[in-house]
Each structure stands twice: as structure tokens, then as C-alpha cells.
Design a binder for these strands. Sequence first.
DNA 1: TGATAATCGAGACGGTACGTCTAGTCTTGGT
DNA 2: ACCAAGACTAGACGTACCGTCTCGATTATCA
Lengths: 188, 188, 188, 188
Amino acid sequence: MALSRTGPVRSEAARLAILDAAVSLFTERGYDHLTMEGIARRAGVGKQTIYRWWPSKGDVIAEAILEGRLLGGRRDLPDTGDARADLAAWLTDLFTLRASPDGEGLLRSLVAAAAGSAETGRRLRAEILAAPLSHRLSQAMGGITGPRLDAAADALLGAVILRALSREDFGQDDMLLLVDAIVGPAAR
Amino acid sequence: MALSRTGPVRSEAARLAILDAAVSLFTERGYDHLTMEGIARRAGVGKQTIYRWWPSKGDVIAEAILEGRLLGGRRDLPDTGDARADLAAWLTDLFTLRASPDGEGLLRSLVAAAAGSAETGRRLRAEILAAPLSHRLSQAMGGITGPRLDAAADALLGAVILRALSREDFGQDDMLLLVDAIVGPAAR
Amino acid sequence: MALSRTGPVRSEAARLAILDAAVSLFTERGYDHLTMEGIARRAGVGKQTIYRWWPSKGDVIAEAILEGRLLGGRRDLPDTGDARADLAAWLTDLFTLRASPDGEGLLRSLVAAAAGSAETGRRLRAEILAAPLSHRLSQAMGGITGPRLDAAADALLGAVILRALSREDFGQDDMLLLVDAIVGPAAR
Amino acid sequence: MALSRTGPVRSEAARLAILDAAVSLFTERGYDHLTMEGIARRAGVGKQTIYRWWPSKGDVIAEAILEGRLLGGRRDLPDTGDARADLAAWLTDLFTLRASPDGEGLLRSLVAAAAGSAETGRRLRAEILAAPLSHRLSQAMGGITGPRLDAAADALLGAVILRALSREDFGQDDMLLLVDAIVGPAAR
DNA sequence: TGATAATCGAGACGGTACGTCTAGTCTTGGT
DNA sequence: ACCAAGACTAGACGTACCGTCTCGATTATCA
């Protein structure tokens, strides 16, 4: 016998309002200033409605990212034919991206989210960033797949993350050097 | 002639008590659960004494790391003659390290600290992890230096950071593959 | 139609716990040692719950007094038929009253509260002390009312306050003289 | 044999700077906002220099008042020949006086000081306010002295204090009524 | 004429309380 | 059962003062 349930079903309007609010607050003030209270206020939603569906602010953000609300089309790499240049451009864009015009680096905020939320961490590598990167990288490296490709993708993305954390400035040239260090040898 | 000031001098005992407290709380509960209030309580110190010398908990931790209180000897790489194996072993150790027996990964906590504190971020790459790594890595790569070496070191360390954030398990073999992806071609 | 609001309603249990705590701390240690933090601790209540309903400790005490928790029956004057003696006895009692067995004078603490809190100041004269006094005083002075009565009541109560502030000792005889100075002439 | 002492003697400059600072801060912000730290800062003096000579801020203020720095000539009553009007005018002035142009009532601040400091309390009645009042009052009441005069003075001054605490407005007419209530009967 | 000792400005120290903010839970009334 | 609203306990935030202490420099008196 199936378990039956009565009452209204989850409100899609509330879900969207919450994700919208979370995204706009994240881009305005960064992950550390993001609060459940603030999301609820801006979304015009009771706090309980958030806690009912997400265990933490990290998971709200994880879902928002997953739906492409934070990075939009930026997850996809350009394809100009020059794989080396495409990769460097994409990495530079990721590195340079600000959450808001005068705000924190978006990548750094993303790392903060990943450090605090298992779900975001999982997705950061598996779906959000590493996955789109992998595809183009595979082409550049002669169609390799498997652990060898994963290592290269992790190395590229990880280096940019580490550099974002270091607060130093890196430009297009540095990224090209980075791409060469990982892709170059295989391409030579 | 410099302006001189008289009066009591900074208490070294208080400084040490604060760093000790910060380190023990960090290893017990991780960076996110670390609080100024908690540090002051455990150190037996007024909160103002912390704020007088450090702007944030991130900077307290940064100083503790800098003095080797968090990583101890682990910052130095082994030297068995087999550079490839040494690097993989060191990375695996870093990846595996727990803050406490049942605790969070120490590397992940370190990344959280770096994401929140500019000072820790700067040092994470410049002094704490990348620097010791660079030396051994240079040997393994035929004595190269400069941006090419930096790129390799960032790639190696960054990959491990990204993998730590992803919460997946990686073992010695994966690290060896990683080392090969970056060092290998040059070493071959 | 009035704007309606839904949601949880103010907790009467919390309100009472706060007033109880405030009163017991006030009588134990006096107004200057009374703290919001201490009230919250003893009441087993979050600080925010106090700040939500009262702007300052003075207003908490004002409400406690208004509900008769601090002076109890002492606000009412005795009626033995001898108005002169009744008034003197009441004033002496007020003057002599300690907040706790070994504590500060309660009247002095009350004055401190009134000096610091507009609400308490207002009520000290209007409701708490002067009002009960006025009634009996009117009888003693041949049923007068209005500004003339107010002046007499203020003079009587004010004199006792001033004497409490002076830390000198005054006894029943002094109070009788005081009553005579204000009521006497009219009663003679 | 007398105990001998060597070393520099108390600095009069420091004493004056402290009293000046205390007075100016008192008149600017009132007794409750007066702090030892603030006095020291404004006076350009070490905190210890204050604590060496005065046990509390109340005692600093008490000394300042005693030297006429707070009330100046206002402690003396006018003498126009009309004692009744002189008394009312003096009381009104006392009641109306602001600590600063836009500040708290000075009398209320004085009462706060008296409630908190035994020394100030003692002097408020004995020397500062009641004493000057007594002289003129004695004339107005036919030269009486002793407890009867004290009662009248306490009643007059006390009434004004109580009214200041109540935050209500009282004008010249009210004060005249008050004077009549206490002086009048005897003068009739 | 030193040595001695109390003074001074400055400010670090261990604490307590401030008033605000957020976490996560619970309660109410409405849909 | 869900929702918006928001009160509840709990506790951290960063700041302001408390009263004590330590520091080095500066006087005065006494040996």
C-alpha cells in the first residue's frame, strides 16, 4: 500500500525566489556575507521554507550554480580553433571575474562555498568547472581520457584556484604559460 | 630621529597563549568553528588583546602557520632519491591529513582560512606550501626556475586542493599520476 | 479594517522571567550593577528578547515597579486616623528600606534608575510614589487638590529623596518635623 | 619621628587639567557618559594619575563642583528684596539649566552623580545647593534656624529634584506656588 | 652629589557589558 | 502539508571602559 500525502505541494515560486535572492546577494557581497536570514528577507519568504528544503546556505548556492545562475554561459569554453589560446582565455576570465563591479573575486567566493559545503565542493569539480574544461582539454591533448585527463584538468583549474587565493595578479601571459606546462608537453 | 614611545611592551606570554589556543581549536574543530571569543577564552586573555594585534581570526591562523605550529615538519619534503615518489608521498600526506583524529581535512580548513583571509591566502602559496614544494620540484625538473617552475608548482598543489574540496578519495596512485602529468614529461 | 499579522505572539513566560530576574538582581545589587546581560542570564533568555521589548534596563525596571514587584504593598499608606503620624511612618519606611539585607538604599537605587531612564523618572513621581502619597496628604490638608497639593507632595517626597542622596541618617522624629513643615501649618 | 618622603610632589597642572576635562565632558555629555578613560584622554594624562588621587569619577566631579567649576556663581541666590521671587527665580534657573546647549538637564546629571557617589551626594545637600538656599530661606522665614529650617530647605530643593527627574516642564509660576507651599504659611 | 623614591604620560593587560547580528527551532494563522 | 511572518534561546561579533600593571623619563629630597 502506498504512503499517501495530503496538502499543498512545494511552491515553485518560493524556490525560484530563494535562488534568485541567494544569487543576487552572493554576487553583491560574496559568500561569507551570505546569510539564511538575508536570503529569506530578500526573497520574501519564511526562514522555515528555506530550511525545509536545504540544510545550509552552501547547498542553496550549490543548487543555484548547478542551474547556471551564477556563471551563466561562462561555463562553456570558447572554440576559436586555437585550443591553447582558448584555454588560457577561459582561465583568465575565470580568474578575473568579480562577483560585483567592486567586489570580491567570484572564484574565491566559490572556493569559500566549496570549503564550507560538501555539495558545492563536489559539484565545483565534477560538473561546474572541471567538466566543461575537460572536454576542450581532451581535444587539445590528443583525445586522451581517463585519469590522465582528470589529472591535467585538476592541475589547470587547481592552479588558477591557488592563484586566486594568493591574491596576486596573474594575466593572460601567465595563463598561457600554465597551459603550456600542462598541455604543451603532450602537444609537442 | 624616530618618535619614541614609553610604556608597557607587548606581552610575549599573551601572544603565545593566543597562538596556542588558536592552533588547538583549529585542529579540534576546523576553521569555520574557530572564533575570536573561543580563542580568548581558551587562552585566558581579553578579546581586546587579540584585536589589538590581529585584525581577524584569519590573521591569527596565518601567523600560527607561519611559525610552523600547524604543519610542523610536514612542510619539508622527504628526499629518498626518487623525486617522483617523494612528491607523490608528500602530496598524499597533505591530502590525507586530518586536523584531528575524527576531524575535517586540514587542507580544506586551510583553504577556508585562505579564502577568508588575504594574509593566509598570500602565505599559503608563497611560503607555507608552494615554497618547499618548489625546491624539490626544481630538482625533479632538471633545475628549471622562474615562471615555468611556478606554473608546475601551482598546478601540483592546486590539483590537490581542488581534489580536497571535491571530497572524493584519492590515493597514492592518483598522486603519482598527477606528478607524472606535470613532472613526468620533463623527466622522461 | 486593521492590518493583521500572523505568526508567534509575545511569550508571557519570557516577559515574566525577565521581570523576575530584573527585580531580584536589582534588590541584590542595586541599579548600577544591574545589566542586560545579567538579566538575560538569570532569566534564561536570549538578550535579543529583552531588547525586542525594552529599549534599556531602566525601562525594564520601570515596568517591574509599575507592576508592584519592587515596592509591593509599600506603595499604600497606612491609615491609623493620625494622618501626621501615618505620613511620617510611610516616609521613614521609604527612607529606611534597603534593597537587600545588607544592600544599598532602595530609594537611592530608584533615583539612580529615574535619573537614567525617562520612563522610570516619569513614573516615579506620577504613579509610583507621589500618587499614593497625594491621596492621604489631601485628607491631611483639608481636602485640597490641584497644584497646591502637587507642590506639597513633591516637597515631601523630594525632601526624603534629597536626604537619601546625602547619606545622612534621618529618623522618625526628623520625618515628623518634615511633615509639620509642609502639612502642619495647614492642619493647625 | 615623622615619616619622610622623597620625590616629586603632586602636579597641580595635572590636577587642573583633570578637573577641566571632567567638567567639559560632564557639560557636553552628562554624568553617565563621563568616563575615567575619556577624562584621561582629554586631559592628556595617564589613567593612573587620576586613580592615584580619586577613587571614582564621582569624586572627581564632586571636587569640581566644590570648586565652583560646574555651577559657578549660580550657587548664590539673587537678592532683590522680594525673597519669595528670589527663591522662585533661583529654583527655576536650577531646574532649567542645561548641561550643554542641547544637552541633558544639569540638575538631573547632578542627581545621577549623587546617586552614584557618596561624596557628591553628601555635598549636594550640605554645601553645594542646600547651604546657599538655607541662608536666604532663613531670612524669608523670619530668621528661623535648626531642623525646622533644614526641613524647609530640603523640601524646596527636593521638590525641584523630583520634578527634574519626572521630565515634566515646570515654569516660574509653578516654582512660586512651591515656595508659597513651604515659605508662605510661615510668612503669613 | 649621587642614590632613592614618588611622580608623570602612555598604554597593554584580563575582564565585563554593550547593542547588533545570525543560527536554527518553534508557533501562529491562513491557504 | 505548505506558506509568510517572526518570536524564541543561544552565542559570536567588534567596541568601549574598568581598574591594575608596567615601562622609561622626570623631579625632588635625603644621606
